Simulated scan of single mutants.
Amino acid sequence: MNIQIRYLSKSGNTKKVADAIAKEVGVVAETIEKAVPGDTDILFLGGAMYWAGVDNKLKKFILGLDCSVKKVAIFSTTAVVKSAYPEIKKLLRAKNIFVYDNEFHCKGEFLKLHKGRPNADDLELAKQFARDITSINNFR
Rank of each mutant, 00 (worst) to 15 (best):
Y7G: 05
S9R: 07
S9A: 03
S9G: 10
S11G: 00
S11L: 14
G12E: 08
G12P: 10
T14Q: 09
K15L: 07
K16N: 10
V17M: 09
A18F: 10
A18P: 05
A18K: 08
A20T: 07
I21W: 05
I21L: 04
A22G: 14
A22Q: 08
A22D: 09
K23I: 02
K23S: 13
K23N: 15
K23A: 10
E24Y: 02
E24S: 09
V25G: 04
G26N: 10
G26C: 11
G26P: 05
V27E: 01
V27C: 00
V27K: 00
V28D: 13
V28T: 15
E30W: 06
E30N: 11
E30Y: 12
K34M: 08
A35T: 13
A35K: 15
A35Y: 04
A35N: 15
A35R: 08
V36E: 01
P37D: 09
P37W: 01
P37I: 02
D39I: 04
D39M: 07
T40R: 00
T40H: 00
D41A: 03
D41Y: 08
D41E: 15
I42N: 10
L43I: 05
L43T: 04
F44P: 05
L45W: 06
G46Y: 05
A48Q: 12
A48M: 12
A48T: 14
A48I: 02
M49S: 15
M49H: 09
M49Q: 11
Y50W: 15
W51H: 08
W51Q: 14
G53E: 01
G53P: 01
N56H: 07
N56K: 14
N56A: 14
K57E: 15
K57L: 11
K57T: 14
K57H: 11
L58R: 07
K59N: 09
K59M: 03
K60F: 06
K60M: 08
F61Q: 13
F61G: 10
F61S: 12
I62A: 06
I62R: 03
G64R: 12
L65K: 05
L65F: 09
D66E: 11
C67P: 02
C67A: 13
S68C: 11
V69G: 03
V69M: 07
V72I: 13
I74T: 04
I74R: 03
I74F: 02
I74A: 01
I74K: 01
F75M: 11
F75C: 08
F75I: 12
S76W: 01
T77I: 07
T78F: 05
T78E: 12
A79R: 07
V80T: 15
V81M: 13
V81Q: 13
K82Q: 13
K82M: 08
K82F: 14
S83P: 06
Y85N: 13
Y85K: 13
Y85Q: 09
E87S: 14
I88R: 02
I88V: 15
K89T: 06
K90L: 11
